[in-house]
């Protein structure tokens, strides 16, 4: 794990702290067990044999008490961590708002009132961001590992993910919840840029929103990131309640010979820079 933002960094440090707090109750087993196995082996062991020994109040107290204390400590940690790292909580004042629609197998990002893009999200460095997330079709999980943990994207529902970006970087985000034939392609670019570059990005020339929508509804996977006008105000809210606005809906399971499957195979080869002539089987 190489975290870039403060949230991902906090996740990493929790992981380490949490792990260390478990050692006092777990190490005695990891060390004690091999020692006992050696010391009390029947042939050649040196331990004294007490076949009837089967109870010790002291040991009981230490075992039950010790693990309970450990769980209390871990419990306090969990309570504090969970609340301080709540993905619904803003990570700073006035976060940049980005609305997200996950679909089979592409991601739409909307900067409300400014612009929209597919498979690419551009963010200024060291800035708090709030993603509002929904999906069409299957359930997905929105995840940019180096910035923060994941949250589900679900049709008919809205979830939120707050994070703060770190230094300049080119990252990858993806869907981690299996959703069918082009799941390995279900990812997007995350560019963390300077404030100036970010402002410039919002000014870039773009295509009309209607183009995005027709395309988005039609294709399964998306070739390269592109930018468009923002949708009318409130569109995302409506789409989150009615996923059909963004997706006409096809099957995620395709017969091996379906034309969509062919396109997806091509897209996979494209992604992997494998020449179009090679069939999948030969690729190895």
């Amino acid at each position: 794990m190489s975290p870039l933002g403060p949230i991902a960094a906090a996740e990493k440090s929790h992981m380490i702290v949490f792990f260390l707090w478990m050692l006092p109750v777990c190490l005695p087993i990891l060390i004690g067990l091999p020692w006992i196995l050696i010391k009390y082996r029947r042939k050649g062991g040196t331990g004294a044999y007490h076949p009837e020994w089967s109870h010790s109040t002291l040991a009981e107290a230490v075992i039950w008490g010790g693990s309970s204390v450990a769980v209390v400590i871990l419990g306090v940690l969990v309570w504090m961590n969970t609340i301080s790292e709540d993905p619904y909580k803003h990570t700073g004042a006035n976060p940049i708002k980005v609305q997200v629609v996950g679909s089979e197998w592409k991601w739409m990002f909307i900067y409300p009132g400014k612009m929209a893009s597919v498979n690419k999200v551009v963010l200024p460095e060291n800035t708090p961001v709030e993603f509002d997330i929904t999906a069409t079709g299957a359930m997905q999980s929105f995840w940019i590992p180096r910035l923060a943990g994941q949250i589900y994207a679900m049709p008919g529902m809205q979830t939120k993910m707050n994070m703060t970006t770190g230094e300049l970087a080119q990252l990858e985000g993806f869907n981690s919840q299996f959703n069918g034939a082009a799941f390995p392609l279900d990812k997007f670019e995350v560019d963390v840029v300077t404030k100036a570059q970010y402002d410039a990005f919002l000014q870039e020339p773009r295509k009309p929103w209607a183009d995005l929508l027709t395309q988005f509804k039609k294709v399964a996977t998306w070739d390269g990131p592109q930018i468009f006008d923002a949708p009318p105000k409130g569109w995302w809210d409506k789409a989150s309640m009615n996923p059909d606005l963004a997706n006409e809906g096809g099957a995620a399971i395709l017969p091996d010979a379906a034309p969509e499957q062919k396109k997806i195979d091509d897209a996979i080869r494209n992604e992997l820079h494998i020449s179009q002539n090679q069939s999948q089987g030969d690729a190895q």
Binding site: A8, C26, V78, P145, G149
Partner: peptide
């Protein structure tokens, strides 16, 4: 068990779920 308890921490689960 140790990794299970780690996953029981929601913050860690955010970063390890589905992985």
């Amino acid at each position: 068990g140790i990794t299970g308890v780690m996953l029981a921490n929601p913050v860690i689960s955010f970063a390890a779920h589905n992985s």
